[in-house]
Nucleic acid binder design. Structure first.
Lengths: 267, 267
DNA sequence: GCTTGGCCTTGACCCAGATCAAGGCCAGCA
DNA sequence: TGCTGGCCTTGATCTGGGTCAAGGCCAAGC
């Protein structure tokens, strides 16, 4: 189904080279104000929500804030997993590569997303900023200390990991058994259920406009399709008046219920 | 790619009906000897390995042993998630269904596998025994108590969940971007890395014969293919002298390294 | 030994989505 | 104002794997 071709191979090599020569993400505040967590807008959406205000100082002291520019990779698959990350602003794509350049995007990490749960020696995926991203970075050892001090944090991480597993299984169903049309419908419905840029859920009846920080190529790699199929399928939804596409990064859902039916395979 | 057809729909309905009328799995020992855990052969492979011998009695008292016959479903997707399970013998397939009967097998649970991590209200997948299966069943509330009493157990569950996530991401890469040939090679290599029936790893140099408790249909649903493609691809591997197929449930890997290359997309 | 039914294999053909190719749109920049 | 480059769209064509169909293998039951 997927064919390896020269361009992809060359791109993979080129891409590996640029990663090596690419400037590192900028650490903006290694000795920051310990009260930073108190005012963190991402807290309600993140694992940090289980830490009470008085304990926040200890949490803040363990973290370093890092900014990442769009297009820059801040986690590389296979690298020693020395850090955990918590996204506090922006969106990143998480992906795995095959040697010839074929890419699978395994998820998009928005505000509040906790990254780096893998306990194997190396990271299981790469992460690249789609928009300007801010992250809190913890070293493996410091997080271990935090988990011992705050059992609630460990419970929360288990909860987060369990939810991720459910999402991953749903994605396996999508990749293994859904048609292109069903995949796109599922993607739109899932995106509509997010607060813009956030992990949380929208209140019922919110405006059905969704923002897409990723390109058509990223969507294709997330859904196991090609750019062309993503584009064609969206065009068809538009022709059928199920969606509107005011710009490349904005989509309005005009018939949520109908899309949901398609997404669940009920057509 | 995948087409919905009448037969599948009818099968789905039929299958739903049989599930409803099917005899429940037999609870064989609800007031069992509390020392049962001490002699449990699955312990070294399971989360229970973090509980010390003296504490095993408390663990054993919280669980109920259940036997499930091949073909019987002991977890149904969407049902209220009241229990957690630990497989102590046999193998089960875990799967999700679409309304028209399309199936995605999300994994195979062997000895030591911990099931039911999902914290959402309902189970995220169904589970059906492939061989005679024995499981330890914990109620949600009892496990909660155990986790409070044994923090090490909670840490272990987080570790297990993290590993599952890594596996799930690898499977997304397989389902989204690998060819049929690469999928089958990956499947064989993964299976070869398991102790027969177990979650653990084989020692290096072990005999490269693998046992498949599942049908070709289960493999197809696991790899996002059809029965015919699985069969054809295995036949081709055999013709290429990469494997031998002494019986439908046994495969011998004759060229492990070559298969591994195919599995990782290096062809 | 024959029948039955559940799997598995194999061949012929088909089609959803990939590939190939051409051109459009638009923001940034000189 | 026009040029450039990165995306995106759309049409034509191709193909890997799905679908359909026929038959083989074999264990269980009589």
């Amino acid at each position: 189904m997927v064919r390896l071709y020269q361009v992809a191979l060359i791109y993979a090599i080129w891409s590996a080279l640029t990663v090596m020569t690419r400037p590192r993400p900028l650490v903006i505040d290694s000795h920051r104000d310990a009260s930073v967590c108190v005012h963190c807008q991402a807290r309600p959406f993140s694992v940090c929500s289980v830490i009470s205000d008085p304990d926040l100082e200890q949490l803040g002291a363990a973290a370093v804030t890092v900014s990442v520019q769009p297009g820059h990779t801040f986690i590389t698959e296979g690298d020693p997993a020395e850090h955990f990350f918590n996204v506090t602003a922006g969106t990143a794509k998480l992906f795995k590569l095959l040697p010839d350049g074929r890419r699978q995007v395994t998820g998009f990490a928005g505000v509040g997303y906790f990254l780096g749960l893998a306990v194997t020696s190396g990271y299981a995926f790469s992460a690249e900023a789609l928009e300007p991203v801010r992250i809190c970075r913890f070293s493996r050892t410091k997080l271990r200390t935090l988990l011992d001090d705050f059992p609630a944090l460990e419970k929360k991480l288990l909860e987060v990991a369990s939810n991720e597993l459910v999402v991953a299984q749903e994605q396996m169903l999508l990749l293994g058994r859904k048609t292109a049309r069903e995949r796109l419908a599922s993607f739109l419905i899932d995106r509509a259920a997010l607060f813009p840029h956030c992990v949380g859920r929208v209140p019922a009846g919110a405006k059905e406009q969704i923002h897409l920080p990723m390109t058509r190529g990223d969507i294709a790699d997330y859904l196991g399709l090609t750019i062309e199929t993503v584009s064609r399928t969206l065009s068809r939804f538009k022709a059928e008046r199920m969606i509107d596409i005011p710009s490349n990064s904005e989509i309005v859902l005009l018939q949520h219920a109908a899309l949901e039916k398609i997404a669940t395979g009920m057509t």
